[in-house]
């Protein structure tokens, strides 16, 4: 991976909506060159998707409940944790799965419409999986910062408008 590719990735990770011409100028390449680089990064599954960070609390009519679940599992010979991780992440309500060091094995983030829905998932779908030994569910009360984005930013530029 060369320096320009990393620079492009950093810019896109921060703002995927930056216009191609602007991005090209920023990294001092032509639009063609940047498009080619991005295409190849997409093909290599280095860039996986372009998503937005949304504060759903501010929208009306789409309430949801999120929880982080600590899961202890029995790893299997040869496939280790990968097989059970896959069986968990294939559920659409699962937003993230991480293998962790420490007191438990998998950290599973899940989102549902209601608390009941989340509880149903844990008791009926997750806990019933063969390799799952135990679960501890933590409901998320408030998001302050997600993926490096602060949810209630102070956006006002505090600098004086013209200075030497």
């Amino acid at each position: 991976m060369n320096e320009k590719e990393i620079e492009i990735l950093e810019i896109l990770e921060d703002n995927a909506r930056v216009p191609m011409e602007v991005l090209a100028d920023m990294v001092d390449l032509s639009v063609d060159e940047v498009e080619k680089i991005i295409k190849s990064l997409e093909e290599k599954d280095i860039i996986l998707s372009y998503s937005s960070v949304i504060n759903w609390d501010k929208t009306a009519g789409k309430d949801s409940v999120a929880a982080m679940i600590d899961v202890k599992v029995t790893p299997k010979r040869e496939v280790g944790f990968d097989e059970i991780a896959e069986r968990i992440y294939r559920f659409p309500e699962v937003k993230a799965v991480y293998l962790m060091s420490g007191a438990f094995d998998l950290s599973v983030q899940i989102e549902g419409k209601t608390m009941k829905e989340v509880a149903f998932f844990v008791s009926n779908k997750l806990s019933t999986l063969d390799s799952v030994l135990s679960t501890t569910t933590h409901f998320l009360l408030k998001k302050y910062k997600h993926d490096g984005v602060i949810f209630e930013p102070e956006q006002k530029d505090k600098r004086i408008v013209v200075s030497p």
Partner: peptide, 25 residues
């Protein structure tokens, strides 16, 4: 300083994009 005049003008206006700031953002 000649900068003062522009500071006074710009601070009274809304929707100003300032490229006049001599410090990091």
């Amino acid at each position: 300083s000649g900068i003062r005049k522009f500071f006074d003008l710009a601070s009274q206006m809304d929707n100003v994009i300032s490229l006049g700031v001599g410090e990091p953002d």
